[in-house]
Amino acid sequence: MHGISQAKAGGLPEDRELRNNGVVKNVGERPQLPVAPAATGANAPAAGEEQHGTRRRVARSILDHGPSTAAELAGRLELTQAAVRRHLDTLAGEGIVEAREKRVYGSRGRGRPAKVFALTDGGRDAFDQSYDELAVEALRWIERAAGGGEGGEAAVMAFARARAERIAERYAATMEGLPPEERAAALAEALSRDGYAATARDAPGTAAGEQLCQHHCPVAHAAERFPQLCEAETEVFSTLLGTHVQRLATLAHGDGVCTTFVPRKPHGTEPPRAAGSAPSRTAGRNPA
């Protein structure tokens, strides 16, 4: 829930050391994001540099908001759809974005479903430094040191929970005293400050809850190998929000966004008093 810099001899890396990610799944050259121009006036960038800067804005908007249509990107960036599509074509050719069919909730209307554009794994990696390989190796070492098998899995789970709870301790002051209806939004803001580009919104097609969406995950590649990281995070969400939550999708499993369903709590429900208390074992696990 930032990258491993140095692990002390004989010890485990600190919480911040697992945050940056960037493991490239396939061996090869990593896609490179264009650098945004900074100079103005007489030193203003050439047209080509401006194009690179705009493409980076397009990619960043997808990172912050999740899979988006060309129309949505045009509205957010105040560009024409034609201009956005040209940049998307270039980004797709560079392996930074890919087109997908938009997921439809409820009954589907007539016509073809809208096309959305999502960051590829390489596109996400381009926003971070490549420290995740060391994180994965550290977790593998923990797993082997505990004897592998169920013992190794339990050791990794214990580490994941300890790490998640340390991070949750920093969120406890933000969450304490908030009414239930404000907690998901507060948690999303806290997660965004830690690089998760999180949002909270009403769940589609239901008034029974909200969706906590994380459009970026600094440890997505480590979580792909060690799902205990996602499970521990979900448990901590349940503790912080004071309710059972269910993980519906994760970036680690190839989804476009990490999505957690948060059922609405009745007004007047007491907020969690201690984020570091023992988490519920019933927190939802990604069904994928």
Rank of each mutant, 00 (worst) to 15 (best):
V219S: 03
E231H: 15
C213A: 13
D15I: 12
A197M: 07
V24Y: 12
G122K: 05
W141G: 05
A198G: 05
T206Q: 03
E98G: 06
K102C: 00
R103K: 15
A283S: 08
E270N: 13
Y105R: 04
A9K: 14
F117I: 04
D64R: 04
Y131D: 06
L178N: 11
F237T: 01
E182G: 10
R19V: 09
A172E: 14
L91T: 03
R273M: 13
M175I: 13
L229W: 01
R16V: 10
S238K: 02
E153N: 15
K265E: 15
R273H: 14
A274L: 12
V24I: 15
A252R: 03
G28D: 01
Q51F: 12
R166D: 07
H216I: 10
V257Y: 00
E233P: 00
K102E: 03
R110S: 12
A275T: 05
D128Y: 02
L139Q: 02
E153D: 15
L229I: 12
H87C: 11
G149E: 09
A70W: 00
D64M: 06
R100V: 07
D132P: 06
V84A: 10
E150T: 09
T174L: 09
E270G: 09
H52K: 14
H52W: 10
H221V: 10
A44E: 06
A283M: 05
Y196E: 14
K25M: 14
G122Q: 09
M157A: 13
E181S: 11
G123T: 08
E72V: 04
V257N: 02
A249G: 11
R144E: 08
P113I: 00
T206M: 06
P279E: 04
A92P: 00
A42V: 10
A39Y: 09
P179Q: 12
L241S: 03
A164I: 03
A92D: 03
T174K: 09
A197V: 08
D64I: 06
A184M: 11
E153T: 07
A164F: 01
I142Q: 01
Q51P: 05
A188N: 07
G53P: 02
G123D: 04
Q246A: 05
T259G: 01
L119K: 13
R161Y: 01
P67I: 00
T174S: 13
A99S: 15
A164L: 00
G256H: 01
V262M: 04
R201Y: 02
G48C: 13
I167M: 02
A160S: 05
E78W: 06
K8G: 14
V136M: 11
E182F: 09
H215Y: 02
G41V: 13
A155N: 04
R86W: 03
E181G: 06
A208W: 12
L139D: 05
E29V: 15
A220K: 05
A92C: 06
R100P: 00
V23M: 10
A232D: 01
A197R: 02
V84L: 11
E233N: 07
A74R: 07
T90Q: 13
R166Y: 04
L63N: 04
Q211A: 04
G109K: 11
R193K: 07
G284M: 10
E165G: 09
G152T: 06
T90G: 08
P279F: 00
A71T: 15
R56A: 03
D128A: 06
N43C: 02
R100I: 08
R273D: 12
H244N: 08
G111I: 00
A173I: 13
R55V: 14
S238R: 03
R201V: 10
Y105H: 09
P218T: 06
